[in-house]
């Protein structure tokens, strides 16, 4: 089994990029691959706690569940600060991290990298 790194750079609403990233992560986990996701730019909102869309899938809940199944998730702290997303507001089991420490390591461990962005 291999290791997949997904980099997500779009937000959780207004398009389905995040849904695609989460579905891909789940399918890869189900096949026994190791999966890591890194949120960059708008992609940091993937792990914002308290997401409550009325009619759309709650990707926050999905990510929380996948994290319990082994999905590793980190997002860029600089991007979070720029958007007023504070440490402590992240979903349990996920991490506000950095490119230097987290994305670089994820990429180095990955067999494949998929960019989900516009």
């Amino acid at each position: 089994m291999g290791t997949l790194c997904i980099q997500l750079r779009t937000g959780t609403m207004m398009n389905m990029d995040t849904n695609v990233a989460v579905k891909l992560a789940k399918a890869a986990l189900d096949k026994g691959h190791k999966v890591m996701m890194f949120g960059y730019g708008e992609g940091v909102f993937l792990i914002k706690e308290g997401q409550d869309p009325k009619r759309f899938p709650n990707v926050g809940k999905e990510v929380e569940a996948l994290a319990k199944e082994g999905l590793e998730v980190a997002v860029c702290e600089t991007c979070c600060i720029a958007r007023g997303f504070k440490r402590g507001e992240e979903i349990s089991g996920t991490k506000i991290g950095s490119i230097t420490n987290d994305f670089s390591r994820m990429a180095s461990e990955a067999d494949r990298l998929v960019t989900i962005a516009r």
Partner: peptide, 20 residues
């Protein structure tokens, strides 16, 4: 778009990481 700037900063972050 911020994309190009973000890409350059990501490359820089990888470069200084000592990992990638």
């Amino acid at each position: 778009l911020e994309e190009a700037f973000a890409g350059a900063r990501l490359a820089l972050g990888c470069k200084v990481s000592g990992i990638m």
